[in-house]
């Protein structure tokens, strides 16, 4: 009688499923039949009840550190996989990186005599004059490369990272920048492109006119004039941006301005400009809107002091380069 499958199913349903009226009556009748039946049922029920709060004291995951880790992955191209932290995996990965690095070095050495590369490091900006007389201001962590024959045969260069271009007019050879999946074609103008790896490509035209297109090339080209901008998400058509970020050239002009923008935009600007990170635990802070006048040659602490007063928040340096924003 104790191993009656049907009764077991009824008990299982009674405990965590749901019984029909008929099933309920049937179970009730069985319980009345013998005290042992009721004892059996009670044992099951008590076991179920005992386990109710078993996981109340389970470890809490750390949201801040997980969010930080997640953010890094969010900006990587899809599809993404989490790198599982296992020692063997790392050893393999390290070995793979060495192989790739060696291959990359060999490749670079082989190609070296046919192209020119200019690179900036983490805390480095450069101003370059190209063979055609055009000027390039290269922001940190950026790279431009052009093949032999630049100026005489072509004016095409590749950009990784961010650069401001002041282009010499030359109707014979349009000046073309390939950055990420974007192509920007100009005659004579000045503009800035921000194309860091795994981020959307952003363009701002300062003077003149440019044609800006995505990986489908000219089919979806946007023609943009001075003062306008565009953004290109990976694999999509470029889109004109209505509101220009007034700090787009901050890295070159060394001037920051915050004119009634929400705090999250300000923090993004500061992250870019000062190469730091902000952690905001309370998302309600993100939309605080405030005004702060222009900063020339700003220093981080000076800007933070103004923000703390203007937005009424606390900003503390948690560890080198990482700041926590709280109430």
């Amino acid at each position: 009688m104790f191993n009656n499958d049907h009764i077991d199913a009824l008990i299982a349903r009674e405990i965590a499923g749901g019984l029909t009226a008929a099933e309920k009556a049937e179970l009730e009748a069985w319980l009345q039949e013998a005290p042992a039946n009721r004892a059996y049922y009670e044992a099951m029920r008590q076991t179920w009840d005992l386990t109710a709060n078993a996981y109340d004291n389970m470890p809490e995951p750390d949201i801040a550190s997980n969010w930080e880790r997640f953010q890094e992955k969010m900006t990587a191209p899809s599809p993404l996989r989490v790198v599982v932290k296992r020692r063997n995996t790392w050893r393999l990965a390290a070995a793979a990186i060495v192989v790739i690095a060696v291959a990359g070095l060999v490749f670079t050495l082989l190609r070296q005599n046919s192209s020119t590369t200019v690179v900036t490091a983490d805390n480095d900006k450069k101003e370059i004059t190209l063979p055609d007389g055009s000027r390039v201001f290269l922001n940190r962590n950026s790279e431009i490369r052009y093949d032999e024959g630049f100026a005489s045969k072509h004016r095409t260069l590749k950009l990784k990272g961010e650069a401001f271009f002041d282009v010499q007019p030359n109707a014979d050879h349009p000046f073309t920048v390939d950055a990420g999946t974007s192509h920007t074609k100009v005659l004579g103008t000045s503009f800035v492109i921000k194309a860091y790896e795994n981020k959307p490509v952003q363009l701002r035209v300062v003077t003149g006119t440019v044609a800006f297109s995505g990986s489908r090339h000219t089919q979806d080209a946007l023609v943009l004039s001075a003062g306008s901008g565009a953004i290109l998400q990976h694999d999509k058509a470029p889109q004109a941006v209505k509101e220009a970020d007034p700090n787009f050239l901050a890295w070159k002009e060394n001037h920051l301005v915050f004119n009634h923008v929400p705090l999250y935009k300000t923090l993004h600007t500061l992250e870019d400009y000062f190469n730091v990170k902000f952690v905001v635990a309370d998302s309600s802070l993100l939309n605080i809107d405030f005004y702060a006048s222009g900063f020339d040659n700003p220093r981080l602490q000076e800007v933070l002091n103004v923000i703390m007063v203007a937005a009424n928040v606390k900003i503390t340096e948690e560890r080198k380069g990482v700041y926590t924003v709280s109430r």
Partner: peptide, 21 residues
């Protein structure tokens, strides 16, 4: 599912008998 549920409860009752009754 129902069978496994009862099996789980029976096994748990044995391993947790010190906390029951």
């Amino acid at each position: 599912v129902e069978n496994q549920m009862i099996t789980a409860l029976k096994k748990l009752r044995v391993s947790l008998k010190e906390y029951l009754e």
